[in-house]
Every structure is written in structure tokens, then in C-alpha cells.
Write a protein that binds this DNA or RNA. Sequence first.
DNA 1: CGACAATTTTATATATATTTTAACATCTTT
DNA 2: AAAGATGTTAAAATATATATAAAATTGTCG
Lengths: 210, 210
Amino acid sequence: MKALKIPEATITRLSIYSRFLKRLDKKGITTVSSGDIAEGVGVSPAQVRKDLAYFGEFGTRGVGYNVKDLIRYTVKILGLSEPWNLVMVGAGNLGSALVTYREFKDRGFSIVGVFDNDLTKIGKRIADLEVLPLEEMPEMVKEYNVRIGIIAVPSKAAQDIADIMIKSGLEALLNFAPISLNVPDYVEVRNVDLSVKLEILTFNLALREK
Amino acid sequence: MKALKIPEATITRLSIYSRFLKRLDKKGITTVSSGDIAEGVGVSPAQVRKDLAYFGEFGTRGVGYNVKDLIRYTVKILGLSEPWNLVMVGAGNLGSALVTYREFKDRGFSIVGVFDNDLTKIGKRIADLEVLPLEEMPEMVKEYNVRIGIIAVPSKAAQDIADIMIKSGLEALLNFAPISLNVPDYVEVRNVDLSVKLEILTFNLALREK
DNA sequence: CGACAATTTTATATATATTTTAACATCTTT
DNA sequence: AAAGATGTTAAAATATATATAAAATTGTCG
């Protein structure tokens, strides 16, 4: 069915458009042009139209896009029409912050389990969840139909944890550890590297001195 | 001096190479080939060489790269030869987690001040720092020669906070709020959007059902 | 022991593919 | 009919991959 390959950059922007549109909707705005979206998120209008064009015709020439409709379309495209249950591994500072991160909830993500292999953390509570030992992950994955897991553990542990998560039945991993994970082909992995953008800033600032 | 424009993707990868190399060094490995690096971080060997070629010739044909030397070069290129002082705005869960985030310290970043405009948070301690009111930022920026600030506040507040940070003298912002900031040309901004990669995963998982 | 060939690996040039930008024809509304 | 905005095609710019050339090391054989 899917003939055309979609650039990942397009998906990235779609996610950003989608959330921008939700803010417009909350403000009561009903119609929007590609130029409005472009300005709101910092890209070109042509880029917005091109990105949307991969998936269909959602606008009306001479008019623009209906905000509510376009939200529905983008949400559908991103696979967010139905809520997703997630598990988190790592009950440290970062893991705890992500468990309570509002934006995830707003987008339909629900963290149903937090795991750690550190005995001092197991049993503690984060929000309304009790930190559980990793052994209990397979059961939870099955019970809550979890397909995606978040890794917020130290780099050293990340690969082992990933292996365990995959064995537990997960198909996709969001990895906050700054290392490259080795996983089977059927597992999707994306890394969130918290340092990279910071180092892009230092690179640019350092250039100024030249 | 800098004639050639360097792709941002190259800087991104350089940051990743640099940290990968540090891990090799810690293991006692002294020499590395582009292929080793490529495998370690998940790109092609040609890509590694091309990225490095923007900045000079760092390797020896037939041999590879000296790990320690290449670390020095990448660190220098990224502007990390000297440590950087940062300020953080937002003493919520995410801000607190980032203040204690080990990786930042390892790369030479030192958070010297945490600010918030929430009276209930001011005065609290995060690690060894007291949360301060925003009014005290200009002084700290000056005293500690801070050029980069991190924004970890709710989206609604982010633009106002950014304005204040810029007025305080900052030149670069790392923004964790999922909105696009309006800033003067001389200010560098990079966004870290914690939801985007998650939605790339859901997009890909949703595709499988097609 | 020295010369030369084979191997390894970088650096560079070339080609391919992808992504972005720009231009334009088309459709709505006023 | 004019203005505004999309969808689409074409062009330009970027980025990636491939191929080749050059340099250093290792191994081999006379």
C-alpha cells in the first residue's frame, strides 16, 4: 500500500505541526493557512504543504486548512488516534521527570509501569506508580498491551536493559542513554541525546570568536 | 577564516563521535578506524571520514586515528576545550533532572544557577544550588560569564522566560518547551522536543498495521 | 637484510539520491 | 475578475554513497 517513502524529517515536522495546531484550536482558531503554520513553527510554507502532500489533500485552495480536521489527520498519520501504553525503565531523576512529563499525557501516552534494577529504588513511588523490578516487565507488557518502552538508565546499563525490554515483548524503544543500541531488525529505536543540541550551541558560539 | 559552511548534521555526528571516542579511550583503546567509529555509532565509515574532512586531516592512511588525538580535535571543534557555565530556568521535575544530569558535567558543562518564578520553588535546593528568582539572573550571568541558558518551563511561559534570559545577557538558549521561540538574530536557539521521537515510533508502529 | 608486493585505511573526487525551495497552475471566495 | 491559498511539478541545494588515489604498514621472497 505505502509506495512512497516518507522522510523522517517530515514526520518530525508533522509532530510539531500537530501540536501547534492543537494550541490554535484551544485558542478557538478554526482555519489556518500553510503560511500561518510555517510562521508558528519556524519553517517555510512550501515545506508545510509538501509535508502534508505526502499523505493527501487536506486543505481547500483559496481558503486554507480547517484546524480541527487537520489535527485529526495529523494525529491519525502519526498513529495517535488511539492511546499508547508505555513502560519506563530507570527511576532516577530523568526517568522520574519523564514519568510526570505532562506533554506525553497530552499526546495520548500513558506510562503504566516504571522499572529499575536498583534495589534501593524498587518500591518507591513516582507519581502514582510503584517502581517495580525488571522481572515483572513481561507480565505488564502483556497485560497492558505495551509496545513502546523508554530507556532512562546510565549508558553502561542501557544495552542490557534494552535486551531485557525486547525479550519482554517490546517493539520500539525510546533511548535517552547516549549510546547506540544493538537491536533486532523488527525493533524500532530512536535516541534522544540531551547533549547534542547543547554542543551545537557551543560550536556556534565558538565560531563567533574566529 | 571559516569559508565552508558545515552541515548541522555533521556537528551532531561529531558530538556523538566525540563521546564514543571518550568511551574507547576509557577502555584503553589507542587507535581506531573510521569503520570502528561507524559501527560504534551507527553510521557509514565514509560518513565519518567526510565529517572529519571538513575540519582537517586527523588520521594516518593505513593506520586509522589516534583516539586521544581525535578526542582532542573533536572537543576543540565543538568548542569544548574550555568549560562552559550554564543557567537553568525551571525548577520543576525536568529542570531538576537536567541540573543533576551527569552527562552535562562530563562534557564540561557546569550549571551555576537555577531560576524559577514560582514562589513555592524559590529557596528550595537542587543538588547544591538554591533556586533563585529570575531577577537575580543578570547578576549571575555577568559574574559567571554565562552565555548559554536552558529553558525547562511550561510552554506557556517559555517565550516570556526567553525574553528575560536574553535581556539578562545570554546568547544561546537550549529550549525544552515544545514551542518555537522568537529571538533576535544574534541569539542561537536549539529545541529539544521530547515528544517528537516518541511520535516517530508510533508512526512507524502504526505503519506496520497497514 | 633489503626490495617489492599485498593489505589496510585515509582522503578526495565523482556520482547518486534525497530533501528543500521555488514556481505555477488551479480552485475558492468575495 | 481579482485576491488568496492549495497542490503539484520542476529546479536547486544538500546530503549520502561509491569509487579511486595516496600513504603507511606488514609480509614475502630472493
